[in-house]
């Protein structure tokens, strides 16, 4: 087989080298995932034994479900989804104001991102102090609030980018067609931005889903999220590696679905067909 313009011996050698490189890169990326999956599905006693699949067993998953894991899975879902639902209305309206009216000026817009640039450790203690005074530590709602606040700048910035990509002509057209500015936003701009809003929401979900530090400090046994629960499997009698692996496999599942979803929207783009 030869590719157009790639004919001849030298072309084929180049192709082979290229593929070899790509295969090595793929292996480097996939190895940990393959290994975790393997450890999850073989019996705990064989976690470190040689061979790809010496024996298949659901014992790790059973051990996982016997403990607090199902509860923390639900906690993660609630907190991640809740924080997105809480933050998005603000991110959307703020992003629109930034994009269309240049609200707050350049400096103002950048200072919104400042919290994102601080190391999380610098924020976690103040957050703890605030939540404690509100009696919201060890509470899913408290964690949801904190995640919403943490992700808001980032989500706002993403939404601003999406709104910048929507031509202002659309709003002008709607307004000459008889819409008020608010109607133009609601009926024309918002539906056009929907894929972007969905993509930003999914990103926010992933960020919250993976967050460890704040969850560790702000949650208790009842309200632990997946990262905290998995860390809790490093007990005094060693790391239960099989159970951890099973937990990781389950934790990654929603992310695979989510990333497929984002990919579709980002590839399709927002306003295809709106202008020429």
């Amino acid at each position: 087989m030869s590719f157009a313009g790639m004919g001849g011996r030298r072309g084929r050698v180049t192709q082979a080298g290229l593929h070899l490189g790509l295969i090595v890169a793929c292996l480097a990326v996939l190895m940990p995932i393959v290994w975790v999956t393997r450890v999850a599905v073989v019996p705990a006693s064989m976690s470190y034994s040689p061979g790809l699949l010496p024996q298949v067993s659901s014992e790790n998953f059973e051990a996982l479900f016997a403990g607090r894991f199902p509860r923390s899975y639900l906690n993660s879902l609630i907190v991640a989804a809740g924080s997105v639902i809480l933050a998005m209305p603000f991110a959307v309206t703020l992003g629109y104001a930034f994009a269309r009216f240049g609200t707050a000026g350049r400096v103002g817009r950048f200072s919104v991102l400042a919290t994102q640039m601080l190391p999380p450790v610098a924020l976690v203690l103040p957050a703890f102090a605030i939540l404690r005074s509100l009696h919201l530590t060890d509470s899913l709602f408290g964690l949801t609030l904190v995640y919403a606040a943490l992700n808001l700048p980032f989500l706002t910035w993403i939404m601003m980018g999406f709104f910048r990509g929507i031509p202002v002509d659309l709003e002008w057209a709607a307004m000459t067609d008889g819409a008020t500015a608010a109607q133009a936003f609601r009926i024309v701009v918002l539906p056009t931005a929907l894929p972007g809003i969905a993509a930003a929401g999914v990103l926010g979900f992933i960020l919250s889903w993976n967050e460890f530090l704040f969850a560790l400090v702000l949650s208790g046994p009842r309200t632990a999220t997946i990262p905290v629960a998995l860390a809790g499997l490093q007990t005094s009698n060693g790391v239960q590696i099989g159970t951890v692996a099973a937990g990781v496999v389950l934790a990654v599942l929603p992310l695979i679905v989510a990333s497929r979803f984002i990919q579709r929207f980002i590839v399709e783009g927002l306003t295809f067909g709106a202008v020429k």
Partner: peptide, 14 residues
């Protein structure tokens, strides 16, 4: 009550 046709057409994509 004026109608505008924009250079970009500005059709509502959704």
């Amino acid at each position: 009550n004026l109608a505008v046709v924009f250079q970009s057409y500005a059709l509502y994509p959704t």
